[in-house]
C-alpha cells in the first residue's frame, strides 16, 4: 500500500496548516506554531494538539526529521527541525487544488463578496 493512499481523504485542517508551514522550509515546533498563529489571527492549536498531529504525520510519512540549520538562532541543540516529505508535498498540493476548486465554486456563487464574475 503506498503511503499516499492513506491520505486519499482530505487532511484535517491542522495537518494542512502544518504542511503549509513547512512548504517553504524546515521549522521546529515553536516555529510551526508561530507560523500558524500568524496566519490565523493569533489563534493556534495547543501544544498537545500540535504534537499529536506531528506524531501522526511522521508515522504517515508526511513529514520527517530535517537537519538543524547552522545558524546562531538554533544554538539550542534540543530543538528538532521538521521538513516536508515528497508525500507530504503531494498531499498539500492536492489539498490546495481541492480548496482552490472550492473557492472558485464559492466565487461563482457570489459567496465571496466583491469578487464575483
Amino acid at each position: 500500500m503506498a503511503p499516499a493512499d492513506g491520505y486519499s481523504a482530505p487532511p484535517t485542517p491542522l495537518t494542512f496548516q502544518i504542511l503549509l508551514a513547512l512548504a517553504d522550509g524546515n521549522r521546529h515546533g515553536y516555529g510551526i506554531i508561530k507560523e500558524i498563529e500568524g496566519r490565523s489571527a493569533g489563534s493556534a492549536p495547543s501544544t498537545g494538539a500540535l504534537y499529536l498531529a506531528l506524531q501522526r504525520m511522521e508515522g504517515d510519512g508526511l513529514i520527517e526529521d530535517a537537519p538543524t540549520p547552522d545558524t546562531s538562532e538554533s544554538a539550542d541543540s534540543r530543538r528538532r527541525y521538521y521538513g516536508i516529505t515528497r508525500n507530504g508535498r503531494e498531499v498539500a498540493e492536492r489539498e490546495s487544488a481541492r480548496l482552490a476548486d472550492l473557492v472558485l465554486a464559492a466565487r461563482n456563487k457570489n459567496l465571496l463578496a466583491g469578487t464575483g464574475p
Binding site: A9, S46, G48, L52, G59
Partner: peptide
C-alpha cells in the same frame, strides 16, 4: 486551560490510537 486540555487529549488519544499498528489501517 487550553494547554492542559490539549495535553490530556494528546495522552488519551495516543493511548486509544496506540491500538492501531503504526501506518496501517484506515485513518477514516
Amino acid at each position: 486551560i487550553r494547554e492542559i486540555i490539549g495535553a490530556v487529549g494528546l495522552v488519551l488519544r495516543l493511548h486509544v490510537g496506540g491500538l492501531r499498528v503504526h501506518g496501517k489501517g484506515s485513518r477514516e
